[in-house]
Design a protein around this nucleic acid. Sequence first.
DNA 1: AATATCAATCGTAATATTGCAATATAATAT
DNA 2: ATATTATATTGCAATATTACGATTGATATT
Lengths: 109, 109
Amino acid sequence: MGLTKTEIFTEDQNKLAQVLKALAHPARIAILQHIIASNTCICGDLVNELGLAQATISQHLKELKNARLIQGTIEGVSVCYCIHPENWEALKHNLNDFLSTFKGSTQCC
Amino acid sequence: MGLTKTEIFTEDQNKLAQVLKALAHPARIAILQHIIASNTCICGDLVNELGLAQATISQHLKELKNARLIQGTIEGVSVCYCIHPENWEALKHNLNDFLSTFKGSTQCC
DNA sequence: AATATCAATCGTAATATTGCAATATAATAT
DNA sequence: ATATTATATTGCAATATTACGATTGATATT
């Protein structure tokens, strides 16, 4: 198979998993950190910073865009990326809600 | 290729990506939610709850164990799973630190 | 107009993931 | 001892992901 059975899970579970999948790669974490660190939009110097080919970076950026974690606007010949503020906040809250449902009080196992 | 170039990233980036990968599947999110909801340890009623085969659940549990998000102890004939409290807290803090480095103030793009 | 530059896309190879049936293993019960 | 129950492992097929060279498309620059 190799195909996730999305139909047996809730929409929330599927959505959270999808965003986390976009985050779950060191290159994409590095890209996001880089975008955040240079607090203005970052144009495509990512290829120089990370040790990956231009095609690969472009692909990772696409996935981050699909997950709506970043947005890009064309700036002349290059493209300008930045965090999607609303969706970033939403993820932060969703994740915190999920992780906070566990109250580590009861001793078990 | 198909092989992540871990050597060009920091250890923190690789580790965070790895834990997120373990979280990034709806079945594993559902499993974690189920373990958390029944605040005692949960034994293998997961197979009945989710609509996945026993082998598949077992595999997902293994990945969550590898990521050290859960721990299991043998309880007679069955196994008892629960959240790994320290690592869960650690993930919560790591993720929050990462997500909070973005201060959504400056308008861009 | 010709050329340079930047980023997206296509095509491809290598590897990873997902899911399950079948089988194996381990502990208890009879 | 043997059967039963619960979980793990193996092996496999289908699909997804990662990475990159080559190409394409779009905008500047000359």
